[in-house]
Design a protein around this nucleic acid. Sequence first.
DNA 1: GACTTTTTGGCAATCGGTTGACACGACCTC
DNA 2: GAGGTCGTGTCAACCGATTGCCAAAAAGTC
Lengths: 371, 371
Amino acid sequence: MIDRLEQLYPLESNGYRACAGDAIIESTGPEEAAMADFPAVEMGFGNRKPPATIYDIARQTGVSPSTVSRALNKPGRINVKTEQRIRDAAASLGYRANPMARALPTGRTGTLGLMLSDITNPVYFDLIRGAERVTSAAGQTLVLAESQEAVERELDDAERLLTSVDGLILVASRLHDEQIIELSAVKPVVVVNRLVEGIASMVPDVVPGLSDAVTHLAELGHRSIAYLAGPSASWMNAVRWQTLFHLAGQAGISLVEIGPGSPTMAGGSALLPRVVASGVTAVIAYNDLMALGVLRSCREEGILVPDRLSIIGFDDIFGADLTTPALTTIRSPLAQLGETAARVLSDRSETSIPVSPPTVFVSRASTAAVR
Amino acid sequence: MIDRLEQLYPLESNGYRACAGDAIIESTGPEEAAMADFPAVEMGFGNRKPPATIYDIARQTGVSPSTVSRALNKPGRINVKTEQRIRDAAASLGYRANPMARALPTGRTGTLGLMLSDITNPVYFDLIRGAERVTSAAGQTLVLAESQEAVERELDDAERLLTSVDGLILVASRLHDEQIIELSAVKPVVVVNRLVEGIASMVPDVVPGLSDAVTHLAELGHRSIAYLAGPSASWMNAVRWQTLFHLAGQAGISLVEIGPGSPTMAGGSALLPRVVASGVTAVIAYNDLMALGVLRSCREEGILVPDRLSIIGFDDIFGADLTTPALTTIRSPLAQLGETAARVLSDRSETSIPVSPPTVFVSRASTAAVR
DNA sequence: GACTTTTTGGCAATCGGTTGACACGACCTC
DNA sequence: GAGGTCGTGTCAACCGATTGCCAAAAAGTC
């Protein structure tokens, strides 16, 4: 079978773009598709060559290890001539400083941790991107960890991560305030999408976006709407609900809370029956994923959107504008929050930091006037 | 300003779900939305308490550090009574082993690296999930790195990562074969979506899915189709093109290659004019992102899909079934590849490993019979 | 009771860097 | 020429674990 693969993808020295002139294509039969008998390949976990150390460089150049260390990290401290010799040797040996050996005496690991409930939730894309950009610009490494919405696990992972990181960004953490404060006693911690006293916190200001959304619905004639609640342990869910509660009151719109539900498409879908039963003409969901879940279920149920039900999401994730109808939503400035969080940790600046960029209402096609 | 925020999100000891009865809601004026003057908060980067070490435990229990180390890691080596005393002390001090101090003498870091061109590309979601699942089940940590489609940077990051990781998974790497082989001389390396001689490689078998796709198009009466090429440095792009080339030939369908383009929605959109000019009735894109880009541009240009143009994507990413029309695509078993890759590195098994699970054609609504 | 074996715990070296203290020579100054 | 300064490089301690080897104590054997 491996033969067939190699015929199919003939290798060249540079690995790809081989001429396919004599490749043999044949359909894979069902028996070949079975899991049990994939083509297999041998792993070569054999003898590896240990990476070069400053001791190797020292021996080769005839200086002491400490001189090597200084030549490589303290420009000017060592004679330029010597420094160059050392640099050349380092390059020829393919030297790379061992980050752990370095971290041990210094305490600096050159690494920031980013913890979120679900790495693959599109909501966090821009946030991750933003943090990545800042981190790598500062020559540091960003490590991502996932807590799977489990408090138990989140604390454990956070503690583990904390020991090997210069700072930690907690996004939409489900931990208790005290637990977060405890973590911050060990290493700098920044929380995003949550407000914790005494901890650098960055939350978008939900008022502008939500306010515009409510006005928008009011202008379309909606008098009765629902909020699709996310996880009850989510601080941001509480904020969105409370804010909406007041704004709806001010606008004279009646509001019901439906949920809590899982912050996923499935979670949204599951709540549709209750939405229908409530008789509301519009829903605002905790996030876009839930909104998309509702949207999909509506299509399956034959409920016309936006004619019979208007839907508003939250976050403006990837894909929100690809649906039909395109999803009206409230955009959170997550890229900016990610950047800021990373910058704060990266600079270790004692100065005050920005904390509350505004959300923006994005009007698309999933909202319309009440019939 | 911070006052307003606190009024808006009043804090309680447990952090959320505070009563919002007296919160004050007012619209944010435009001047407040300006970037310059976000509410700010002071960071407390003050004196941190250093984490507990085995020396602290040793002192408290009156034994030597080596005994502590053994009590915690070599069950049975130490008297149960002593071991328990040590465990209790460790717990009361909140001890957490410093992974770097441990890695230094042992060489084992308990960490796997996963490198991909773009963390936030939905294509890789399932792959990341799969790798994460296996890794964390094995008590290890997965660290993600992003290479931004830049070979220079990818090599640099890979080398840096390699020093602090037990093994490395390279996904859709743009590196040269030699570079990858060199990396694998230092630490175990697995490549995904690419075939490199001598390196454990996992690629989906594109034939089944692509074959069904071509048959599908042929049955719908398409006689002339286009392939929207992805990055020319992508091994997988070459494979998809070559395979399609043969399958189309066998089916008697004429085929043109359009591109290469960036593997993004923008990349797909940019190629639409050339698709139109070519006069084909169907396109198969390098990936779903490009297919979605074409789809969106078609909508903007008033080109009906699938009536005037059939579109097939690749990978079946999140959102592919949310569009209108829902995207017909070829699903890659990436979750499985991610799991397998992680398992191979995690077990360090010398045994042979599965390597080529089949792709599956997913027929949805973006393909139809030629008028 | 003397000898052997097993259990239990400590000593010290090691991993690969960093860094404060210091030695040595060159150069400068009065 | 004595004293001071500066530039350059080495020594040795240290970060927090792991682990091979050994010693003391306890248990077992004849």
